[in-house]
Design a protein around this nucleic acid. Structure first.
Ligand code: MN
Ligand code: MN
Ligand code: ZN
Ligand code: ZN
Lengths: 126, 126
DNA sequence: ATCCAATTTTAGATGTATTCTAAAGGCATG
DNA sequence: CATGCCTTTAGAATACATCTAAAATTGGAT
């Protein structure tokens, strides 16, 4: 556990915004200016392999999610924001068979417009 | 509607495999050898803007889905195959509010191992 | 403390998917 | 035929991610 790795882990633990690798890099770099992108990617991939973080893909970006409890996401179609859903919906899902495939997990993605974007839009109109 | 565009639309209409842009390019190019990648990407993005196709992102790839009816997907964690779910699960989902956000759609992603990959694995073992 | 092997970090090169650009081509209209 | 508009094309440019090889750091053994 090096300072760089600690900074990366801390960055993930402190956020709920599902940052991209580049956002993690920017954050870590502000505290450890010499940290390279490669270290950030290496460490994130180590965390992935160890199942300590998950990935949420959206708009061509891989966003990293330190919340490894099964949960669902809301994604804003305007600003791209990804937010955890403290899921009552989870209980709606029975893990059932799909064809002859072996099902391991099920996840809901909810799309729409986030409150911030709606407010921005209303102000822009008025 | 040019021959290239028709070929791209036909390619999408004929498949259920959620091809990538490059897979569409390969298919179209086999019939119209001079078609460029730019035309494929341009046309796919036009179709997206017109809401005639959707995107399914997986493993860093954008896969194109001509099925614009709301539906769900099974994704194989081994081969990456994306398959529509003729959804009884759809009815499990009530389109409910998430925070102060405006919900527009909800989609289930089921992950696991596909039948083909399971068979391949069993043969490899035996 | 010194040496050494193993691991980690770094800068930059490389890879891969996608988008952009500028010129050429097609097609309809006057 | 000349004009304008849209499409296509090839290749350059961009963006995100991964790989490489050398330097730096670590921890254990002497
Ligand atoms: Mn999450
Ligand atoms: Mn589909
Ligand atoms: Zn938003
Ligand atoms: Zn499979």
């Amino acid at each position: 556990m090096t300072p760089q790795r600690r900074a990366i882990v801390d960055c993930l633990a402190a956020t709920r915004v599902h940052p991209t690798a580049d956002e993690v890099f920017a954050d870590v770099n502000s505290r450890f200016p010499m940290t390279s992108r490669a270290t950030v990617y290496n460490t994130l991939n180590l965390l992935l392999d160890a199942h300590l973080v998950n990935i949420v893909e959206e708009a061509g970006l891989k966003r990293f999610d330190p919340n490894i409890e099964p949960h669902h996401h809301f994604i804003c179609s305007i600003c791209g924001m990804v937010e955890d859903i403290e899921s009552p919906e989870k209980d709606q899902l029975t893990l059932l068979n799909v064809g002859n495939h072996v099902v391991e997990s099920m996840q809901i993605t909810v799309r729409g417009k986030c409150a911030a974007c709606i407010n921005r839009g209303i102000r822009a109109d008025g």
